[in-house]
Design a protein around this nucleic acid. Structure first.
Lengths: 135, 135
DNA sequence: AAGAGCAACTCTCAAAAAGAGACCAACTTG
DNA sequence: CAAGTTGGTCTCTTTTTGAGAGTTGCTCTT
């Protein structure tokens, strides 16, 4: 029978660090799938230097639709990156604030951002070269 | 008129590190939008310890459809993370191999993976708590 | 007092992206 | 001669995302 890196055929697997892991209980995928959403990491950044209100975030990131803003915030709240606090003022205000987990995530996100800034030119060049030769 | 953090209304902006940047020329978004695709980083990992052939990758990551495997590889090739080499054997074989850029990206991806593994439990707990109280 | 505006959403509908799986051509192996 | 391998493409369906109108309650303006 066909084997996949020593596992039975039907089992779902993946590779991390050269190791084959079963798909179902891979922590990395579980975390990455959520946080790698189009808006998630940007949202964590937007909250980096203090709590912000809903409409403040909307103004800071005008590209996001309200629908996705709401949903991204909910998802991040659910996974424990931020807290949502409702102040029953008039009009009501809702404050979003990073948790310790959220701030801890920032430390790993930072190198990512620096890498991107440093290698942006190379990537754009690669793209241009590819597009030229492939048309 | 309504201003957004000191910029004119029509202009698209974002926040990185507490700074407001215009959307059109933000290197981070440009890089992140591509590499944060569902399969991209996993693919880079799969190539971490050496070049692999198309069907080898398909076996390593059985969850991916052939369509997305092809497309992810093309996108990564276009952005310069990997090279694609066709050997005119019978049957033909195509080898995918990380470039220097791709390997450099690995160095920034690694902390990410470790963070995920370390904080997986906390995230799962947050999720469970949220689901319990919100139902 | 009527109308406009803000806050934080939700809802619906359209567009884009992803997944499932059939099909393909050339060759090899049983 | 039938079946399998390789590296794809094509079509169809489902899921995600985006655009934007609608909502409730209160305040501020004219």
């Amino acid at each position: 029978m066909n084997k996949v890196a020593g596992k039975a055929q039907g089992e779902r697997v993946m590779v991390i660090d050269g190791r084959v892991l079963s798909m179902s209980d891979c922590p990395v995928r579980d975390v990455l799938d959520k946080i790698s959403g189009k808006w998630s990491s940007l949202m964590v950044f937007a909250l980096a230097d203090g709590p912000r209100r809903f409409s403040e975030l909307r103004r800071l990131i005008p590209d996001i639709s309200q629908r996705m803003l709401t949903q991204t915030l909910r998802d991040l709240q659910r996974d424990g990156y931020l807290t949502r606090t409702v102040y029953p003022t008039q009009p009501p205000s809702v404050e979003y604030r990073l948790t310790d987990l959220g701030r801890s995530f920032l430390t790993v996100l930072h190198p990512f951002v620096h890498w991107s800034a440093e290698n942006h030119a190379a990537i754009r060049a690669a793209r241009a070269a590819y597009d030229e030769e492939q048309g």
